[in-house]
Design a protein around this nucleic acid. Sequence first.
DNA 1: GCCGTTTTCGGCCCGACTGTTTTCAGTCG
Length: 576
Amino acid sequence: MHNSEIASLFDELADLLELQGANAFRLRAYRNAARTLGSLTEPLSELAQGGAKALQTIDGIGKDLSEKLVTIVETGELPQLEELREQIPSGVVMMLRIPGIGPKKVAAIFNELGVTTLDQLREAAEQGQIAGLKGFGAKTAATILEGLDQVEQSAQRVYHADARPIVNQIVESLAALDSVTQVSVAGSFRRCCETVGDLDVLATATDSAQVMDALAAHPLVEKVLARGETKQRVRLSPLFDGVKKLELDLRVVPVESYGAAMQYFTGSKEHNIVIRKRAQELGLKVNEYGVFRGEEYVAGGSEAEVYAALGLPFIAPELRENRREFDLAAAGALPELVTVDDIQGDLHMHTTATDGQASILEMAEAAKARGLKYIAITDHSKRVTMANGLDSARLRAHWKNIDKARGKISGIEILCGIECDILEDATMDLPDDVLAEADWVVAVLHYGLKQPRDQINKRLLNAIRNPHVSVIGHPSGRVIGKRPGAEISFSEVFQAAADHGCMMEINAHRSRLDLDDVHAAAAKDFGIPIVISTDAHSVNGFVELQNGINQARRAGLTTDDVANTRNINEFRKLIR
DNA sequence: GCCGTTTTCGGCCCGACTGTTTTCAGTCG
């Protein structure tokens, strides 16, 4: 069973226990554990070989949870969970996803009305049974009916890239108001998470009512869900088809609290729990209004002030996940994060030779316009028949065309590359003598991803040991690890890459973001050069670079860690 | 259920908003 599946068992257990009214701190222990397990880079099935004791070295895993983990790994199930599932139908757990309805209300609905499915819930609400329950009323019944419509939607999250234009429009329109002095986005969007569940916007203003009125009247706002003195929650209409309706929280705060509020609402929750504990230890209190010693205001105008009051340097939002930012801060070793402007080359893209939409020259011109100094054209190899992949002869002809294109454009270098499949039998899709002629070889797995872990590992290791392979694309949990039974041993793969001078790619395409932040951070620890590539299939594809940068920053990468921040000559030296 | 330079008990971050109440519990972030 994969780590993320095991993590979701713990999350499910927490949901079920919560419906039974279990101690809140016990629930937190399960949820913390689920979060930690989900972000491990080594398979739990392997770690569990060392027994319960070995698992207890994982933060947040104690005696009880380590024993449960061993049971799960050995038997594939957990008796306690099975038992709870029998007591509480899955439809009841689904009710927890209705906005505005929590465990207490769901438990009441289940226990007092015997409602066990969402359909029954809708019926009960429509017939007035819900409003008749103690502690419930007409409003709650209406909330449930409305929420039921959103349940399916609310499971989705929205790509950062899709939320960006929405955020920009709203922030810009609020910034234009007379009474607004500062406005900015906070939350998971500001932390540059790959996806966002909702949006948080913060403002300082001389007239908070004007700001809230303006937001309510914004063309992107579909409905005001709640409004108070300092806080307004709205539902947005989608900017594109197929993107879910985001909810947005606007908070209007005093100028002296702006930094504290930014810090508070940027999160993450886990980062802030550490912040608040640290404050307590220093005899201080931190909330969204500032840092206080007793009643006395100590800091809060800027985030830097807040961190300084706690004896900390400013920590970049992307790092605020309580992973290792506090250790790095203590060691004075917070990284200076790579930015999108640092990138000089893009090393993964397609043309009309295979499944791209633009010619070599068009891609080169678009890359140049984007400010890039070099690119690698990396069309598919023959195994990818669906994309009209190239065999040796077509590839050599394609490289000749690249050479011709070089003569028609100046100011950008074009490398002759190939995205070569690593076949199911662990050999490469093209012969070594062809790969040897390439400037740049991206080795990837497209097929046979459900093979056993050992075979997947073997394929990756073989590619890494092939001296003609420049970089491994798609190596992370995204493509491989999340497929049951096919997790890879990251330390083995990363160690091999480090030993052989093989790079690792952060694939920036939003829907196949690969080598995510957690794995990129692990790769950095092994000293592997990392390239951030767009996998562009059209001239518009380069905008995706930002997604890769987001992951790189969340991984704590600097310009030194990212190979394609170097100029072409320095970059060539890194290619083995 | 986890954790410990206050270590085997007693803590565990903090506040806003809503609805159903008549002073507060539930939910959310």
